Amino acid sequence: MAGLSGDPSVLRKLNSAAVLQVLHGALLPGTAGSGKAPQAAAMTLTEITKAVAFSRPTVEDVVEALLEQGLLNELQPTPSRSAGRPARRFGFRTDAGYVLGVDVAPEWVHVLVADLVGTVVTSHRAAVSRRTDGPERMAAIRAAVAQARAASPVGGQPILGAAVATTGIVDTTGRVVRADLPGWTGVNIAEGLADVVGAPVAVENDMRAGAIAERWIGAAVDADNVAYLHAGLRMGTGFLIDGRSPRGYHGAAGEFTQTGGKRALKAFRRLLDHLPEAGPDQPDAADGSRESVESLFVAAARGEAAAKAAAKHFAHTLVKAVEGLIVAIDPEVVVVGGSLALAGDIVAEPIRNHLASACVFPPRVEVSPMGDDSVALGAVRIALDQVEARLFLHDHRQ
């Protein structure tokens, strides 16, 4: 067909979106989110015309407009032995803009700046206290975002979108409707970051973001039905059904039950009794800091008997607390994330064994390669989804 017919301004947007999507999809896979960029792939005008099924003049006009907008690159032509000029080649500009992914945990703010295919260019982490009140925590997030932006090689390119993954339950406006952190309930994160980001800000629960990251570049790549178990200084679950993350009526889908949450918290406190003794230059293990909790799971992975037994007992208690959720969603894969992932198969084994008897169809159990970073990376993916929905004119809802 010779392009779409109708209102000219709408047609230009639709045609531009179609060409952009084809060239974006032509990127050769890399390890997005890890800092390694996908390899640039290019297409000729003839190849683009065939892919979008528009007329060649339409494609030429669209490509020239996208070049002027800075969304495409014209790459060096491929050397040819035939006579005549080599065909022009075009590629999607991954650095035409950037996104922010922010993890708001009880004891830190982690900000990632990534390009338009998710390659991380800057990572900034700032410590906060679990006792920090709402306004002070919001100020810390704003400061961390500003510092990450200042340290990023974005030049004059814009921030096109951002997503914040926070502990607690949030509504669709970006407001925290329930949280255990002091003064955090009622805070509208999207509004609080609007001026410092300068682009649309999506806000999501941290465990939901972790599940999204695992499906994107983690232990559940290409799995549409996923359960995510995260444990460390924060605990929770997230899940995907048919590739989407259901929110539920109040945005609380996937939360611990009251009984399950108490059981998991009691098991975690018991776990702290087995923390390795701190060395002279290490934080006191009794403080339950991120480093000390991680040290226990690392000790378990090394095979130290006490740490190994404590980690296995905790993992078994944790999966019992959420077995109802896992049975209900019938996942293909259960991902073990957070600091708990540092113990590897030591904790995956009791979870796997329990689910083998609890589930009609036992899922496979995998250990996250990202640990705590999965939440910030999930926020990057959410931000990219929002930006791509605008660029490609899709109606995208998680």
Rank of each mutant, 00 (worst) to 15 (best):
G3L: 06
G3R: 00
R12W: 13
K13H: 05
S16R: 08
A18M: 06
L20S: 05
Q21F: 07
Q21W: 01
H24E: 13
P29L: 04
A32L: 11
S34Y: 05
A41I: 07
E47Q: 14
I48V: 14
T49Y: 09
A53I: 11
A53W: 08
S55I: 09
S55D: 14
T58A: 13
V59I: 05
E60Q: 13
V62N: 00
V62Q: 07
E64T: 07
A65R: 07
A65E: 13
E68L: 06
Q69R: 12
E74S: 03
Q76M: 10
P77M: 03
P77L: 06
R81H: 07
R85P: 08
R89L: 12
F90D: 04
G97R: 00
V102N: 01
D103N: 10
A105F: 02
V109H: 03
A114E: 09
D115E: 03
V120N: 05
T122V: 14
R131P: 08
T132Y: 02
D133I: 06
G134N: 07
M138Q: 06
A140L: 04
A144G: 07
A146Y: 00
Q147H: 01
R149A: 13
A150L: 12
S152C: 12
I159Q: 04
A162E: 11
A163F: 00
A163W: 00
V164E: 02
I169P: 13
D171H: 05
T172A: 15
V176Q: 03
R178W: 11
L181D: 12
G183E: 02
I189A: 11
I189M: 09
I189W: 02
V197E: 12
P200W: 02
V203Q: 04
E204R: 07
N205H: 15
N205K: 09
D206P: 13
R208M: 11
G210H: 07
G210P: 15
I212M: 14
I212L: 15
A213F: 01
E214V: 14
R215G: 15
G218V: 03
V221N: 10
V221P: 15
D222G: 15
D224A: 15
N225T: 15
A227Y: 10
A227Q: 07
G232Y: 06
R234Y: 08
G236L: 09
L240R: 03
S245R: 00
R247P: 13
G248T: 04
G251W: 02
A253Q: 06
R263F: 01
L265V: 12
A267G: 13
L271F: 04
D273C: 06
P276Q: 01
G279F: 05
A286S: 14
E291F: 08
E294G: 15
A306Y: 03
A309W: 00
A311Y: 03
K312M: 14
H313T: 13
L318P: 08
L318N: 04
V322C: 08
L325M: 08
V334R: 00
V334P: 10
V335E: 04
D345T: 12
I346E: 12
V360G: 01
V360M: 01
P363M: 00
R364S: 10
V367T: 02
G371I: 01
D373F: 02
V375D: 01
A379Y: 00
L384E: 02
L384Q: 03
V387F: 00
R390H: 09
D395N: 05
D395S: 11
Q398N: 10
